[in-house]
Simulated scan of single mutants.
Amino acid sequence: MKNNQKKFLTPTLEGDRFKTKSVPVEFLQELSVIQDLIFELAKDIYKKEHPTRSRLPNHFLDGISLRLLDIKKGSSIMELDLDTSEIEALDLSNDTYSYLEKAKNLLIKDLENIDIEDNNSILSKPKYANYFIRIGRHLRPNETMFLNRTGRKKYGKLTNDIRAKVLNRPYVGLTIDKFEIYADVTSIDKKNQTFTISESGLLVSASLALIDIQLLVKSLADVELVTKVLIKGTGKFDSTGRLQVIDRVDEATLIDPYDVHSRIDELMLIKDGWLDGEGKAPNKKGLLKLLTFYDKFVPKTFIKPAIFPRPDGNIQFEWSSSEYEIDAVIDLMDFKSRLHSLNFENEKETIKNFDLSTKVGWKSMNLLINEAL
């Protein structure tokens, strides 16, 4: 073996499929994920051991890669070497090997101790456990992967049952329940096959296999409007009732960015001081009562308003067209509304007051808006 090649890892596959000297191509993809996990863990170990450093050393992982050297008979035994030839060719100084060894050993140790409750285990952290969404995913029943092998000794056993424990490990103590949420899609990660949503200010990631990716792409298509997605499914919740994990998606629907229900949900999350330390939060009971009036007195086909909070704790509806700009300030205590409209062509302004706790008030306001727009 060349000096720039160090024997590093010997993943082993056992089962009827692997008795010949061959490895299904999908498992070669999993080796790449194992490399990504070990490299990420090595970086975090370095940061933990050097808390005063804000950055990794230059070229910390540059020029290092795992390469498949050989596949041995009996079971599919894959010898992986750590190739550092690029480092030597570039004459770079790199002290990464020891951290990669630490990362490998820590991963194998925690995988073997998956049944022991240990909050310090790396597999208690979603960041690392989620790599197993792609590691071991192609194993069939009665098949086993070992992450490493030395002679006859095998380490880091992985089966379908163990993989399920790894994926569930960060979420022990969570309760399972159905949910229906309005959420913003914040990102799609095709490499890791995940998507991330923001729900009540909390980021939640899930597998792309659970949802129609085209729906997610459409929700991100307009950079000016945040298009929400209504998601119904089953997930895991912590003790405060916050959604932590999406296990299943039964239905996902794009929501109109001007959807009144989802916007009211957002306004209910606002807290005092939302405007540069000032600004009163809208009254939640008032918001819910206003929504009841809106559903009762406004036709579903009516032009939806943009809705904004006001510093005094009330809210403002806005409509606009090429000719008009209309806003209605609504008091959330008595539901009195002051509407102001401006005609851009003749600069005519109109100011009207309406009682939005009554059918007559809504009908009169809707008529004025409909005539203008």
Score class of each variant (00 low, 15 high):
Val229Trp: 00
Asp44Glu: 08
Asp238Trp: 11
Pro141Glu: 01
Ser75Thr: 15
Ile87Gly: 05
Pro51Lys: 01
Ala164Gln: 12
His59Arg: 12
Ser124Ala: 10
Ser93Thr: 10
Phe335Arg: 03
Arg263Asn: 06
Pro11Gly: 02
Ala328Ile: 07
Leu230Ser: 02
Glu323Trp: 14
Ala281Lys: 15
Asp184Leu: 02
Ala89Ile: 10
Asp355Glu: 07
Lys218Glu: 14
Leu111Arg: 11
Leu290Trp: 02
Thr175Ala: 12
Trp274Lys: 02
Leu356Met: 07
Leu56Trp: 10
Ser32Ala: 12
Lys363Val: 04
Ile108Pro: 04
Asn58Cys: 07
Thr253Lys: 05
Met333Tyr: 15
Ser322Cys: 09
Thr159Met: 01
Thr159Ile: 00
Pro51Glu: 01
Phe308Pro: 11
Asp161Lys: 15
Tyr324Glu: 08
Lys296Glu: 05
Arg163Lys: 11
Gly156Asn: 14
Ser262Leu: 00
Leu80Asn: 09
Thr84Ile: 07
Thr96Glu: 02
Leu158Val: 05
Asp44Trp: 03
Glu49Lys: 09
Asp16Ala: 12
Ile213Trp: 09
Lys236Val: 04
Asp259Gly: 05
Leu208Tyr: 13
Arg134Pro: 10
Thr175Val: 14
Leu368Tyr: 05
Phe317Asp: 06
His59Val: 07
Thr234Met: 04
Met268Asp: 10
Glu40Asn: 14
Lys304Thr: 03
Glu266Met: 08
Leu220Gly: 01
Thr52Pro: 03
Lys125Glu: 08
Ile264His: 00
Gln35Leu: 05
Leu332Trp: 04
Ser341Phe: 13
Gly279His: 01
Ser54Cys: 05
Phe27Lys: 12
Leu68Phe: 09
Tyr294Phe: 07
Arg163Tyr: 05
Lys43Cys: 08
Ser200Trp: 01
Val223Asn: 14
Ile34Thr: 09
